[in-house]
Design a binder for these strands. Structure first.
Lengths: 120, 120
DNA sequence: TCCATAATTCTAGATTACTAGATATTTCGA
DNA sequence: TCGAAATATCTAGTAATCTAGAATTATGGA
């Protein structure tokens, strides 16, 4: 990922509806959600949501899959990973202590509430 | 952090100069960098940089400290942590496997190159 | 107190982004 | 093949953001 792409991805996240969509899809997990379902859940008009879903997808923050005439969307963990990776590239300035607190976020909020067989 | 604040923080990151500044300061580590030094390093006019530093600081992505007549800026790890925490809130949908890859980013890019006494 | 340095604030013209109405496309079922 | 459902695209008026010139504030030294 280069700087232009990263800026574009952060732009995708800097709008209320789109940020809500990503969080909703992260919470939805592997099941994903239908496009109309997402629009309904967030109280946004269908065409506006379609535009915003497209922007998120172009940024590789979400993925989609068609089922019949509806389309399901999912959080794209690989894309999110790429973004965080770019941001934290060469971080810390060699000082582990500066960077470590960021790990706690994911460990606490995400993994601790899952089962405890920490394979890391 | 609420959604409005998170949007505002992502907006702060969705501009090339500001994203470059945050990465630069993450790489600089605890030493930080002077305001003029940052502007010089990125080839941005001093008043434009000042505006952008202010936006990053309002978003709690960087901190500042005055030394005589110059001002040093530092990455604000607590602010960054808050943002990631908000984004990943209630993630995974109970499926640990969906979320775990995000940890690798920080573990690989940031901590593995530090000493190996993994206290997690 | 006066000057130079370092950084910030004010401002406006130019660019970019957002929303929603209207229309188009895709798919399924009858 | 026709109609309905689900979603996407086009468009334009409105709103927000970006940059840099000019002026301002804060600090330290002579």
């Amino acid at each position: 990922m280069d700087i232009e792409e990263a800026v574009s991805v952060f732009s995708a996240l800097s709008q209320r509806t789109r940020l809500e969509v990503l969080r909703l899809l992260l919470q939805a997990g592997p099941e994903g959600m239908g496009a109309g379902e997402i629009a309904g859940a967030l109280g946004v008009r269908q065409n506006t949501m379609s535009t915003n879903l497209n922007i998120l997808q172009r940024s590789a923050l979400i993925r989609s899959e068609r089922f019949g005439r509806s389309i399901r969307y999912y959080a794209d963990m690989a894309g999110l990973r790429g973004l965080l990776s770019f941001l934290m590239e060469d971080c810390c300035g060699g000082e582990r202590e500066l960077c470590a607190p960021l790990l706690d976020v994911l460990v606490c909020d995400c993994l601790e509430k899952a089962d405890d067989q920490s394979s890391l």
